[in-house]
């Protein structure tokens, strides 16, 4: 697995944790233990997304600051796959 593929997978793992914790916290809004986990992984997700945008391409428009070319539009699309 190359660096780009590895980082994207790690972002996938961390965001999956966030999705799961979000859905749990929606109905358990006072569970401080779960909130601590959420806060921890949300910070990691943000750092990883910034690193991915700097090295490869922006995953969100918030990370798409551009000068020479429109980086958001030039980014590969997720359904292309690794062999796309």
């Amino acid at each position: 697995m190359g660096g780009q593929e590895k980082l994207l997978r790690d972002i996938g793992i961390v965001d999956f944790v966030l999705v799961e914790l979000t859905e749990y916290l929606d109905t358990h809004p006072f569970d401080r233990n779960a909130m601590e986990y959420f806060n921890h992984y949300a910070r990691i997700k943000h750092q990883m997304s910034r690193e991915f945008a700097q090295k490869y391409f922006p995953l969100t428009k918030e990370m798409a600051e551009s000068d020479k070319e429109w980086r958001w539009g030039m980014a590969p699309l997720p359904w292309e796959g690794a062999c796309g």
């Binding site: 996938g12 793992i13 999956f16 944790v17 914790l21 358990h28 779960a34």
Partner: peptide, 21 residues
């Protein structure tokens, strides 16, 4: 009711099986 105690230690495994709980 679901009570949160801990997540899987191996989060890559959690990602593959589809839940962290």
């Amino acid at each position: 009711w679901q009570y949160f105690d801990r997540m899987f230690d191996d989060l890559d495994k959690a990602y593959r099986i589809g839940t962290v709980f």
